[in-house]
Write a protein that binds this DNA or RNA. Structure first.
Length: 599
RNA sequence: UGGGGAGUCGCCAAGUUGGUUAAGGCACUGGGUUUUGAUCCCAGCAUCCGAAGGUUCGAGUCCUUCCUCCUCAGCCA
């Protein structure tokens, strides 16, 4: 029998393959869930977990989320959604010195904005690693009791030296053989504040000669007197990521713990730790498993937290939500939409290969969803006056005002039309007129015909110039029988089609035109002429924002913050969420339209 | 020069246990529609899977060697 080849489902990736296999083999069938995170005893009292899988998105609240995090969010929450599972939002807040509530709030906002929720029925799967400090402490004592951990009195410098190098084995610490009782006493003293910051450290006892440096007795608990945003001053010892993260996953009954490639070397320790705690009866099988994927690299963008912080603190941008920043807060303000990020993450896939995604992929995704959902409006960004000399005046010598009808969306007639008033004097785009046309230019030229979009065909009769020879006013005459929507509209075919706004009706408005923040595809990559690493700041684009005064069609005055429009022939623009006031919105250019015309 | 990873079209990326014509998207190139030089539609776009050998009736998929890139020596995450 010929087997039919089933087409590869869209978005297939190696992690989905793993989940498929695990589900098929029932690897996690015996899992129980007591309704909240907890140790083996706690979960054993619960019900079989209704969630087929549990994933988690575990940011450290020490900065704003960026586009790279969006990839991880869509991966983790998307997996949970597609496999009838649950995804937890967990703050990995084990280092009190760098974390704050401001970041916690910005992160929850961003995840919600992307369209995800950690609510699952009555349950809220929003957790803090710091809420597990009691268990972590217990786990550490258990390790000590079973001879798997010891308190080291070496200085950080001594530890660095005895750790060895990439090619040489390390040496055992002179304190490695302290008795269990001695270790327990010292660790409790650490907890009780009897030792100075940095004087003592708890380490697991594994193998100082391991070729994997992460297994050379990694440090798991340090003494640090710092105020924690969640636990206050309760603790003066804090667990380290290496130790804390596997435990967080296990307590939350996570099945698939997905992180980026740089943690691959950490996986043996992840498994080692969990097995030791399972042996001690603190945790139960099946234990969570860690999988790694390649982090996102985007051309013309920096995504390292350190660099983003620097851009904000040194005020190269206006703040974390500067529309030029790749933060989710910035992208939102720029007018990027959640649906566009979903398209983007679907499009770039998930793999273990290091890659650089072209920034235009992201822009195309935004264009694609914005094109579908945005109503059209007319805006003249670089205005020059066009006078229709033969347009009728009334008895007072004022221009006639005529209604023209512009569809709100060319592909969606059901969205209706709106009125745009036509008068004798209009604003048109400066670049739509050329006294001496370049090759292929088919807009306004002397003696040429062009259609005033949704209005009449006009014939250019000339222009006025100032002393410097710059065009100040363009003149034309209209052909009365050619109005759009009338039988005569097709009597004359013209190729050019330009947009306009009535001078007497226009809404004069501030518009910000954004360009890429960096002028190099790989900011800061490579070396200077004298062989040093290049500073990414030298690649900053000095013209990443231009603020202009544009002439918009009158209806735009009513736009509310975050309303998105396509300004015809220009691109997508959003009413700024911060600076728009009711009745006087200001706009940010999200992204331009594609422009195939080679000028 | 230790360990752990990755190398499939310009950019991403599918390729189940080897099975015959190497998915798909983006980009690009033609052509069509169009009152946005937009959108949309249609067509084209890897004899080849980092390289070289080998096993096999058959290899991107197995073996060997080699090359390139990423990553690990915080009491950060």
């Amino acid at each position: 029998m010929a087997s039919e080849k089933t087409p590869t489902p869209l978005g297939s990736n190696f992690i989905r393959a793993i989940v498929d296999k695990d589900l098929e083999q029932g690897v996690y069938q015996s899992r129980k869930w007591a309704g909240s995170p907890g140790d083996a005893a706690h979960q054993a009292a619960g019900q079989p977990d209704a969630a087929k899988i549990r994933t988690r998105f575990p940011p450290e609240p020490n900065g704003y989320l960026h586009i790279g995090h969006a990839k991880s969010i869509f991966l983790n929450f998307g997996l949970a959604r597609d496999y009838a599972g649950v995804c937890h939002l967990r703050f990995d807040d084990t280092n009190p010195e760098k974390e704050s509530q401001e970041y916690v709030d910005s992160i929850t906002d961003a995840v919600k904005w992307l369209g995800f929720s950690w609510e699952n029925g009555q349950e809220s799967n929003l957790y803090f690693a710091s809420n597990y400090f009691d268990f972590m402490y217990r786990a550490a004592e258990s390790l000590i009791e079973n001879g798997h951990a010891y308190v080291d009195s070496q200085t950080p410098e001594e530890m660095r030296i005895t750790r060895g190098t990439l090619t040489e084995a390390g040496k055992n610490s002179p304190w490695r053989d302290r008795t269990v009782a001695e270790n327990l006493t010292l660790f409790r003293e650490m907890r009780d504040g009897k030792h100075a910051d940095g004087s003592l450290i708890l380490r697991t006892k594994i193998d100082m000669a391991s070729p994997n440096i992460n297994l050379r007795d990694p440090a798991i608990y340090r003494v640090r007197r710092a105020h924690h945003h969640n636990t206050g001053d309760k603790w003066c010892i804090y667990p380290m990521y290496t130790f804390a993260h596997p435990i967080e996953d296990a307590l939350e009954q996570i099945t698939h713990s997905i992180c980026t490639l740089e943690f691959e070397d950490q996986r043996p320790f992840y498994d080692w730790l969990l097995e030791r705690l399972a042996e001690a009866g603190l945790l139960a099988h099946p234990l969570p498993k860690q999988y790694e994927f390649a982090r996102l690299n985007l051309t013309y963008v920096v995504l390292s937290k350190r660099k983003l912080i620097q851009l904000v603190e040194e005020k190269h941008v206006s703040g974390w939500d500067d529309p030029r920043l790749p933060t989710l807060a910035g992208a939102r303000r720029r007018g990027y939409v959640a649906e566009g990020f979903k398209l983007f993450t679907d499009r770039i896939g998930v793999s273990k290969a290091d890659s650089w995604i072209e920034y235009t992929i992201l822009e195309d995704c935004m264009r694609e969803v914005l094109n579908e959902g945005s109503e059209r409006r007319i805006a003249v960004l670089d205005p020059i006056k066009l006078v229709i000399d033969n347009y009728p005046l009334d008895s007072n010598g004022k221009s006639q005002v005529e209604d023209c009808f512009a569809p709100n969306h060319p592909l969606k007639p059901e969205l209706g039309k709106r009125v745009v008033p036509l008068t004798r004097e209009l604003w048109i785009e400066r670049e739509d007129f050329m006294e001496v046309p370049s090759k292929g230019f088919f807009r306004l030229v002397p003696d040429g015909l062009v259609r005033l979009r949704y209005g009449y065909v006009v014939k250019c009769t000339g222009c006025e110039k100032d002393a410097n020879g710059n065009v100040t006013v363009v003149h034309c005459e209209y052909l009365p029988d050619t109005k759009s929507g009338t039988p005569g509209s097709d009597s004359i075919k013209v190729k050019g089609n330009i947009h306009w706004v009535s001078v007497t009706h226009a809404y004069e408005c501030e518009v910000r035109l954004y360009d890429r923040l960096f002028k190099e595809a790989h900011p800061g990559q490579g070396h200077t002429e004298d062989g040093r690493d290049r500073d990414f700041l030298t690649d900053l684009n000095p013209n990443s924002v231009t603020v202009i005064t544009a002439q918009l069609e009158p209806s735009l005055k009513d736009a509310k913050a975050e309303d998105s429009f396509q300004f015809e022939r220009h691109g997508y623009f959003v009413a700024d969420i911060k600076d728009s006031v009711a009745g006087t919105p200001v706009f940010n250019r999200t992204v331009t339209l594609r422009d195939a015309w080679q000028k």
